[in-house]
Nucleic acid binder design. Structure first.
Lengths: 171, 171
DNA sequence: GTCATAAGTGGACGCACCGTCCAGTTAATT
DNA sequence: AATTAACTGGACGGTGCGTCCACTTATGAC
């Protein structure tokens, strides 16, 4: 069922994938699908979960500069690099998982938020609570998709620009 | 009809307002509504248009620091201030107008993009094409709404944080 | 091995919204 | 007054949603 969903998310606009589509592709009835997942968002989240946990683990206990030990500015830049990589590899799943408000209500955003906020606090910057969501905004999947698909920017250029941002904010 | 739509956008989640709702509230049939507007997005855009044009005019021919004459960093900060004000006053309309991809395909985003890009060029910063969308990302209505409604941040704090961003990027 | 109970399955159902279409009405023109 | 044009509002078919339930399959007791 998850494999069927992954195929569909990859093969067309993830936001247009319906529960019927997934059920049909998986060869099961709608009721069976609904028994396990309440909507397409939670299916995309389930598919994305492993990758997000992996990054979260590296942020908490990995090597610097992603993990603890490096200066906040370095860690922020490394975080941007890792997030762009994750977005680039799984943009279809992230688009499926973070449609509309789901981006903010899902657990992953909370994790990124706590992490970046702690970096801001460590760097002793003014009003981390206001800055944190601003620094995370460029990682919104819709924004990334626009840069990638419409503006034809590669992950490297996006990452470089984000590094400029990180360097600018973290004096 | 526009008045009815404005009432509805203001009174509930703008993304949940349907064409039937607006037609009923306006006291006309669905067909009549569709004759003038193809979807709810274009209705929200029509309501927002006047306010956006006003700001665009100020950017092009107004007094500095919003208009021409001030340093790019100053103009960027002023632009952030004005955009936060616009978002704060009309968040319901912007949410209705920029749902999903509409944010990027609508004409307004293109205008903001050209403006900010020209400031980046004037300041001689690296890769304006990559930076511009990153600097505009925090102005996405979903992000602003999250900061305002969920994080309970006032426009002043958001503006200050954005100024920090502008100052950081524009050396 | 048989039977009762539980867990699981898949499609049918009613609902909401979409976008189109058209018969009827109203206004404009000569 | 008559002809034409423009407008109106609801009916229609289509799609996706989420629930519900008759049926099948697995589990465990005797």
């Amino acid at each position: 069922m998850l494999a069927a969903a992954r195929r569909l998310f990859a093969s067309r606009d993830p936001r247009a994938v319906t529960m019927d589509d997934i059920a049909r592709e998986a060869g099961v009835g709608r009721g069976t699908l609904y028994r396990r997942y309440p909507d397409t968002v939670s299916i995309a989240v389930a598919l994305l979960d492993a990758h997000e946990r992996e990054l979260q683990e590296k942020l908490l206990h990995g090597e610097p500069p992603l993990g603890p030990g490096a200066a906040p500015a370095e860690r922020m830049a490394a975080f941007y690099t890792a997030m762009v990589e994750l977005l680039d590899q799984h943009i279809d799943l992230v688009l499926g998982a973070e449609v509309g408000d789901a981006r903010f209500t899902g657990g992953a955003y909370g994790f990124w938020r706590v992490h970046v906020r702690s970096l801001l606090v460590e760097a002793d910057l003014a009003d981390p609570d206001a800055l944190v969501d601003i620094l995370l905004a460029p990682l919104a999947p819709e924004a990334f998709r626009f840069q990638k698909e419409t503006r034809h920017l590669g992950p490297d250029r996006i990452t470089s620009a984000l590094h400029l941002l990180a360097r600018g904010v973290f004096r």
